[in-house]
């Protein structure tokens, strides 16, 4: 019996219902739409659908999606980082379980329903609009719903828990001893945060950014509920090609392009971050000791990032920080 025998059913299931369909979509993307009633044909293969998908009509939507993706991820990071730090470091340990549970509740509320909640809040005739008009912040009814701003609010809201949770885990792992050591060695709290806590929490930042950016780019529901005509995203474009326009070839090309855009952006982002932090990393080198053998095997190894696994070891031993 081969070693992977038990994984064969899952493998077969995923190949049949994930790999094969996606491969078919890639195949469709090289075809064309034959006439009004056909959805796709592949007797002539070309890259024409990709050119069509990048024509000015659709290209603005791709740019729009990328803008929302980048701005949304950045906002999630800026909003989520202090919260995660507060939960993991400042809040009393006895309340952390409760706070975590509170972050999970929105995460597990139906995506569509909580987005509808925002539609109710942002509606021109809604109570927020009435309140703001009553206070005198705005003159007319609130004019946010069905714009790009509404979509941005929606995606930041929808994906914020996915940013907070990995950041919390990362901050939690850094542990108090290291921060105290940094303080004992004369560093102020800002310096401790910038030179000890944040560098050690880097795997969490990376995980959070990826967990937010990737699904956000493919989001379909938020833009449908809050975006209207002005806040279009690629997800809707793909859906409409399959559902209303019945042009499966073009829709497939858009879907493939969407995946490519996500992959290229993540790769470029990684490169930029790597280059930008180069001077910091050469100045701020961590020398971590081997994890002591007395430490029990961790109950749930992350496996996500090798750097993540060195973090708990670091909590047991004060590393010597070499700064030049």
């Amino acid at each position: 019996m081969p070693r992977f025998a038990l994984a064969i059913p899952a493998w077969a299931w995923l190949v049949t219902f994930f790999v094969a369909p996606v491969a078919m979509v890639v195949w469709f993307s090289f075809g064309y739409k034959p006439g009004i009633f056909g959805t796709h044909a592949n007797d002539v293969l070309s890259f024409d659908r990709y050119l069509e998908a990048l024509s000015p009509t659709f290209f603005t939507t791709f740019l729009n999606t990328l803008w929302i993706g980048l701005a949304g991820t950045a906002l999630c990071l800026v909003i989520g980082l202090p919260v995660a730090y507060w939960m993991a470091v400042k809040a009393p340990p006895s309340r952390r379980g409760l706070l975590l549970a509170l972050v999970m509740v929105p995460f597990w509320t139906n995506f569509l329903v909580r987005t509808i909640g925002w539609q109710v809040i942002l509606a021109p005739e809604g109570w927020l609009s009435t309140l703001l008009q009553g206070v005198g912040v705005i003159d007319g009814p609130l004019d946010i719903l069905y714009t790009r701003t509404a979509v941005l609010i929606g995606v930041v809201y929808n994906y914020l828990p996915l940013m907070i949770l990995p950041l919390y885990v990362a901050f939690d792992r850094v542990g108090n001893p290291l921060r105290e050591a940094s303080k004992d060695l004369g560093a102020g709290k800002w310096r401790t945060f910038a030179r000890v806590t944040l560098p050690l929490a880097r795997p969490g930042v990376i995980a959070g950014v990826l967990l937010v950016f990737i699904p956000l780019m493919g989001d379909y529901i938020t833009a449908t509920v809050l975006g209207g005509a002005k806040g279009n995203m690629v997800g809707q474009l793909v859906a409409s090609q399959f559902q209303t326009a019945q042009n499966w070839a073009l829709g497939s090309a858009m879907a493939v392009l969407l995946i490519l855009v996500i992959m290229v952006t993540v790769a470029l982002g990684a490169l930029v971050v790597w280059l930008a932090t180069l001077p910091f990393r050469s100045r701020n080198r961590l020398v971590l000791g081997e994890p002591p053998s007395t430490r029990a095997a961790p109950a749930a190894p992350s496996g996500a990032d090798s750097a993540a696994d060195t973090a708990p070891a670091a909590a047991d031993r004060v590393p010597e920080e070499v700064a030049s």
């Binding site: 493919g218 379909y220 997800g235 793909v238 497939s252 969407l258 995946i259």
Partner: peptide, 8 residues
């Protein structure tokens, strides 16, 4: 993205 799974 879920939408890609869906259309596929």
């Amino acid at each position: 993205p879920e939408i890609v799974d869906a259309v596929a």
